[in-house]
């Protein structure tokens, strides 16, 4: 780890920093490689390349490509955790779509996504815009807001259970100030989902905040000063200069947040166990219950593929929308 602090001046440093002007992730592309620079030695190096790439490629094939293909196959089979397997074609998908609980968890997941994603983006963008370089000790604020994002989610959820539960911090505070009981957040039909979302936003926005903050830092001062000379207010400068300039980052963050929020599991699982009833049960918890509580791995795989198709859909939108929606210089 000392390497990190001593190797500061490595030649790549400035190169890496320029990449960040574009949205993160877009830096990854199959593109301009220094192939033109090195015409010779093709023969000698040809098998070294394959040899260097082999460990990673084999590992990735075994532990990602094979499982993903296998899961598609398993989703067409009756595959109990113990015992024989039989081919059943689309039977799992039919059962899935006939299961009322499945549609409940799809709706719950959608509800979570619709609440969580905008809240996360507004909070993270707002704070990133607030934490300009002029704010004293901004790096301390950044670190604070990032703590729950990088620490074990389970530990953070445990604390929030203490805040939410009857006689917990929120309830006790209300009792001693207003003399009223707070709702039993985690056991109340109307409150449970909001409680899960609030905790998740608290725990998750730090990541987008960092992305936006770095993107805002990269907006050229000259553009901002030009707007200010024209007499634009801070508000107008933000919407008409900074916001368009960081639109690639906003787009990227929106897509990533969408994808991760469709996979929400730990927060509802530990706060409410999906309850009350099935009020906060999400798609991943449904997959987990089907696979590991009811031990029906075929049906669970079908559920996982539904989730995967949703995520692929978002990825496709990201890919197509990038050109249209986003302002690249």
């Amino acid at each position: 780890m000392t390497a990190v602090t001593t190797q500061q001046a490595a030649p790549a440093e400035e190169e890496v920093v320029t990449v960040k002007v574009a949205a993160p992730g877009t830096a990854i592309a199959v593109d301009e490689e220094p192939e033109a620079r090195r015409p010779a030695e093709v023969g000698r190096r040809s098998w070294w390349g394959a040899a260097f790439a082999a460990p990673h490629s084999i590992g990735l094939a075994l532990f990602t490509v094979v499982p993903i293909v296998a899961s598609l196959v398993v989703s067409f089979m009756n595959w109990p955790m113990i015992g024989g397997h039989t081919w059943t074609g689309l039977e799992n998908y039919r059962r899935l779509f006939d299961d009322p609980i499945f549609w409940v968890v799809v709706r719950n997941t959608a509800e979570y996504v619709i609440l969580y994603v905008p809240l996360n983006l507004v909070v993270s963008l707002g704070l990133a815009a607030w934490l300009t370089p002029r704010i004293r000790h901004r790096h301390i604020f950044r670190v604070l807001f990032f703590i729950p994002t990088i620490t074990p989610l389970v530990a953070n959820v445990v604390v929030w259970r203490m805040l939410y539960q009857p006689d917990g911090l929120i309830d006790a505070t209300l009792q001693s100030t207003l003399g009223e009981h707070a709702p039993n957040f985690l056991a109340d039909d109307t409150w449970a989902m909001f409680a899960v979302v609030a905790m998740s936003v608290w725990a998750g926005f730090g990541y987008n905040m960092l992305i936006f903050s770095a993107a805002l830092d990269a907006v050229p001062d000259s553009q901002i000063e030009a707007a200010q000379l024209d007499g634009a207010s801070a508000w107008r400068t933000f919407w008409h200069v900074k916001f368009p300039a960081i639109s690639p980052s906003i787009f990227f963050a929106t897509m990533m947040t969408l994808i991760t929020s469709f996979q929400v599991f730990t927060q509802p699982f530990l706060l409410t166990k999906g309850g009350p009833g099935t009020e906060t049960e999400t798609l991943v918890q449904y997959i987990y219950n089907t696979g590991f509580q009811n031990q029906q791995l075929g049906l669970a795989s079908a559920g996982a593929w539904v989730l995967f198709v949703i995520i692929l859909g978002i990825t496709a939108v990201q890919f197509l929308g990038q050109k249209r929606w986003v302002h690249y210089e």
């Binding site: 990854i28 199959v30 094979v66 499982p67 993903i68 296998a70 398993v74 795989s301 996982a304 995520i311």
Partner: peptide, 18 residues
């Protein structure tokens, strides 16, 4: 590149079978 699109949650079931 393509494997980056596959979320861990989707892999959990087949990984368990494996």
């Amino acid at each position: 590149l393509a494997t980056l699109m596959i979320p861990q949650d989707v892999l959990v079931i087949p990984m368990y079978v494996m």
